[in-house]
Design a protein around this nucleic acid. Structure first.
Lengths: 331, 331
DNA sequence: ATTTTAACCGCAAACGTTTGCGAAAACATT
DNA sequence: AATGTTTTCGCAAACGTTTGCGGTTAAAAT
């Protein structure tokens, strides 16, 4: 169990002081080129790397970001994390991933851990049960920037990066109108979620523009429920030209099961369109047309906002990422 | 930007020494009940938590585990991580998740970071391009146990926790035989992966037991390729009673697309069965019957192996988790 | 009344860094 | 030759803990 090399060991072997080694390694102008060379060579040889705990203890900064998500089994968060990691690598930060399991209590523990670790910043999609955002603001006060993404609190004065719910719902609705479809079955998620409200409002308003369009709106809070409500509603549509709109992947998975169960096939028997991050729609044939909410984009946006915060920008900002239509064969 | 409370602050406010506070907080017998009470009360009030960096610097132990996976967009790894987190929480460890993106270079960096952070142990599914396992063994020498799971190296003498490839392939094959199906189209993954070989061998051997069974074996290294090869093979089977076997979720996703494309429906037109962690099979109607490879089980097994290592067990062990048949409606 | 024992607590060093400050040596300026 | 100026480096304190050891009281034993 041989120890990792330390500044001290290098210093002793070279008959210089610890401070000289420290400075040489970070290219401090006080150290002569000759000494620097010597030191760097030995450091390379020994594969020296500073002990992050000691560094942090001394400097109070960790060069690592935390990403907190409710769940990992989610393509959207996955691509968000990818984007953050890509950027972080460039800037010499590492990223540590936390999963709150959508549990506010665990979320609190994670937050505490982040505070004690003095992470450089936090990207977080809050749980659906998070009500108290005071702890987040406290972090900000402690000098740890918090960027909320995707699932964000109502509170105004914080940094929020969201998908363009209205925009996504809008382009999905427009696609339906463009196809000249007059009968629309739309399945939305939990009525209480702000995301549902935003999508619903825009969707109905765009659909409402059309003449004598028949729009039926249903709600489901889970994949199973989505299957049930879709199953119950479908019989009313068979034979007519109609489309099913699903607000999310969760809903889409359920509705598609119902559609398959009824033996219906898109685009022959009906149109199907969704708002999605792009994983589920690709599992079916034909691939489902969807308005893309890109976790990757959101990640890039969030990161640049974070860097600005670290650089000193203190005013809060809400950024919305607009989505684009990915055309499959389901309409 | 008020600072976190420290031992020193508590000590000063109570007119005792730092060491007394430290000992009181960890219930050391040297400290009187009265003093302990005083100290604990103030600590609670101030929401004191030890600075992990200082603790680590002093003790050389971090009470955190690292989980390294090639990808996060994977239900199997997700449930593995869930299991680890559940257990870790119980034992007072936290877990930090790394993603190697299936890149051996990134994997090396992660390993280095783990070493410097002196994590208490590492759970890792190696990348498919990892050839040199010396760095892993070196960690073990440094006193950091390494548990390989799922994607494990060939090297004998290390701790490996794997899914029971043979067993899973076996029960899938048996299910096919039990249904009296004589024509089988089996799609496997990358020929070079050990997992493919293991599954293939067992599958063919069980199927081979049956009389005049017609088995066709195809390979695909991606979802798209799986769709292509399935598409090409399907016409030869229509009209006959047959089954499609998919070695993995990746394959299943592709094959299902081909099956839908041909307008075939399970179980009417064919049987479908797979080896899966259980996410994808549930997206279709009827749900696909599959031999379950449980990430959750693997996580539990891995964790208990880890704790044994930490407790001092030094001999390496390979554990195989057998799977069970989850019956959907596709056969 | 003296010694032994136990209960309780503080001192100080150590973990590996970073960094302000001061000092020695070398060099340049009068 | 004396003074000023760089260049180059080391000292030592600090970050917040943990812990061996020793010291002080008070109670118990002689």
């Amino acid at each position: 169990m041989n120890q990792n090399p330390t500044l001290k060991k290098i210093a002793e072997r070279l008959n210089v002081s610890i401070s000289t080694v420290s400075r040489a390694l970070k290219d401090h102008p006080d150290i002569s080129l000759e000494t620097k060379k010597k030191i760097n060579e030995l450091a390379d040889l020994l594969e020296y790397d500073p002990n992050p705990y000691a560094v942090n203890l001394r400097t109070h900064s960790s060069k690592e970001f935390a990403v907190v998500v409710p769940s990992l089994s989610n393509f959207f968060y996955h691509s968000f994390i990818s984007a953050i990691e890509e950027e972080a690598r460039i800037f010499g930060y590492s990223v540590i991933i936390y999963r709150s399991s959508n549990d506010a209590k665990i979320e609190q523990e994670i937050l505490k851990s982040c505070r004690h670790k003095r992470v450089s910043g936090i990207f977080i999609a809050i749980t659906s049960e998070t009500t108290d955002i005071a702890p987040f603001l406290k972090l900000d006060v402690h000098g740890i920037p918090v960027i909320f993404f995707d699932k964000v609190p109502q509170y105004e004065s914080c940094n929020k990066i969201c998908v363009g719910d209205e925009h996504a719902a809008g382009i999905a609705a427009e696609e339906i109108m463009n196809k000249g479809i007059k009968n629309v079955l739309a399945i939305f998620g939990d009525k209480n979620m702000s995301i549902t409200k935003a999508r619903l409002e825009k969707f109905s308003s765009v659909i409402g523009q059309g003449e004598d369009v028949n729009l039926q709106i249903l709600y489901a809070t889970s994949t199973d429920e989505a299957e049930q409500v879709t199953l119950a509603a479908l019989p009313g549509y068979v034979g007519r030209k109609f489309a099913v709109f699903c607000m999310s992947d969760e809903i889409l998975a359920g509705s598609m099961k119902a559609i398959q169960r009824k033996g219906l096939q898109a685009p022959k028997d009906l149109g199907v369109i969704a708002i999605s991050d792009g994983m589920i729609p690709l599992l079916f044939y034909p691939e489902i047309t969807f308005a893309e909410t890109s976790g990757y984009n959101l990640g890039k946006l969030s990161f640049s906002r974070m860097m600005r915060c670290i650089a000193g920008s203190s005013f809060a900002q809400t950024i919305v990422d607009e989505s684009r239509l990915v055309v499959g064969g389901s309409m």
